[in-house]
Simulated scan of single mutants.
Amino acid sequence: MQEPVRVDIIVTCKLGFERVVASLIKELCPECRAVPSPMGYMGLVLVEAPTQNIEVLANNIREKVPEAEKVFKVDAECNARLQELGECVKPLASGISSDESFAVRTVRRGKHDYTSLDVNAYIGSVIKEATGARVDLENPDKVVLIQILQDKAYVSIVPGSEFYRKMAPTKFPMYKLYRRMVVTHEPYLGPPDASYVMGTRIGREIQCFEVGKLVVAPVGAVEAEALQRFLRGVIDGQKSRLGIQKKSYGREVHRTEILVQDMYQFVRSWHGKPLIIFEPEGEPVSRVGGELADFIIEKVFREKKELGVMVGAREGIPSGLFRYADFVLDVAPGVVISTDLALTSGLIAIGTAVHDKLLGLDLSDGVEKLAE
């Protein structure tokens, strides 16, 4: 199929779904032309709607075609030359008021004598001069999206909310809390294969959350070979997750330190520091969530103390240690949580209780710096 003479809507989708999306769009609009993978570019469908109201059709695609990831109405089209792009964007700048923020984002397909960053900088200066609006690359009110397909450029002005972000201004980076934690975990000493596999899962968990330290804490004397298998699994699981984080994160990753200490001796050495134990005998997190959040913010963020978190395995945390904990918590009353899920459940419960209160604080008082 040839490319449409005019492009009214650009739809993005997961690779391999181009023909499915094009077919569904044709069902919504039989008179439209929908071109999957134009010029061989996968994940893309170009739509020409000669008789349809373009805005209505775009909304219909958003509502009725879940296979469509993003749906952009094309506001202007021109040749893919920088100067021509600048002239093309100027009339559209009226859609951005002087009290709004904006960002320019460019997706470039094909070979050109400029980069996507060149386009962003040049078009950004054109819009700023025309409107007086401020640039906000993190949380813009409007996004000027420029999609370049070889010798053609398509411009769309869309709300900033169209672009999902993992770390929006309404979120606090919880790894800053988890890095201040020392997790004490009873080793899982079962059959040989089970001990190793359980260890790998726990190793991946502690590294996933970037916990400050993990203390593997047996209760008294244990069989050495079983403990060795569990520890090998923990280390292998941690290394596996750490390697993925280093490749995919756009920030420095904290490597969780792994230690071994008898559980009773750990509690003795932890005297005077904040301590939370997760066991079914405790209070439901939902009942004490507010008190828990205030306690953690005060101790960890303001007093800059480490937070101890204890999680059991097959036998659980000895009840005599409950007296030394500030909180004994039950994540899911009535549910016996398996060992490989217990730590994750507890850490998520703490993060959920604390998160919104952190956002409600005035960060000018130093809480953000204390969290680092």
Rank of each mutant, 00 (worst) to 15 (best):
G160L: 09
Y154P: 08
A153H: 11
L149C: 04
L117T: 08
V119Y: 12
T106K: 11
A130Y: 09
Y164I: 12
A168W: 10
K171I: 07
M174H: 04
K90D: 02
V155C: 10
T170G: 08
S101I: 01
R109I: 12
D113F: 02
V104N: 01
N120H: 06
K128H: 09
L137F: 11
D136C: 14
K171V: 08
V143Q: 00
I123L: 15
S97L: 12
A103R: 01
A133V: 09
S161H: 04
L137S: 13
V155F: 03
S161K: 09
A93H: 10
V158G: 01
L149H: 07
R165P: 03
R108A: 07
V135Q: 15
D141C: 08
Q147A: 12
I157M: 04
Y175T: 07
R105C: 00
G124A: 10
G124T: 07
D151N: 12
Y154H: 14
S156W: 06
K176S: 05
A133T: 07
V143F: 06
I157E: 01
R105P: 00
Y154R: 06
A93M: 07
K90H: 06
D113M: 02
P159M: 07
G124Q: 09
Y164C: 13
S98H: 12
S156N: 14
K142M: 08
D113Y: 08
G132Y: 08
A93I: 03
P159N: 13
N139G: 10
V119W: 10
R108Y: 06
P173I: 01
R105A: 00
S94A: 12
I157L: 13
V144K: 00
D99S: 11
G124K: 13
P140N: 08
T115P: 03
V89P: 05
L137N: 09
T115I: 08
G124E: 11
Y122M: 15
I123Q: 10
P140M: 04
M174C: 05
T106I: 12
Q147V: 14
Q147N: 15
M174V: 09
Y122E: 15
R109T: 13
D136G: 10
P159Y: 11
D113T: 04
Y122R: 14
E129I: 04
V135M: 09
V155R: 00
D141V: 12
I96C: 02
V126W: 14
D141Y: 03
T170F: 04
V135W: 09
A103E: 05
R108M: 14
K166G: 05
D141S: 14
L117G: 01
R109W: 13
L92A: 02
V119S: 10
V126H: 07
A168C: 13
R165C: 09
M174D: 02
I96Q: 07
L92H: 02
P159V: 07
E162T: 11
M167H: 11
K171H: 08
S97A: 13
I148E: 07
Y154F: 15
D113C: 06
R134Q: 15
V107N: 06
L92I: 04
T131L: 10
P91S: 11
Q147S: 14
S161Q: 03
H112S: 03
R165Q: 09
A168I: 11
I146W: 02
P140F: 02
I146R: 00
K111S: 15
T106C: 13
D151F: 01
F102P: 00
S161I: 04
G110R: 00
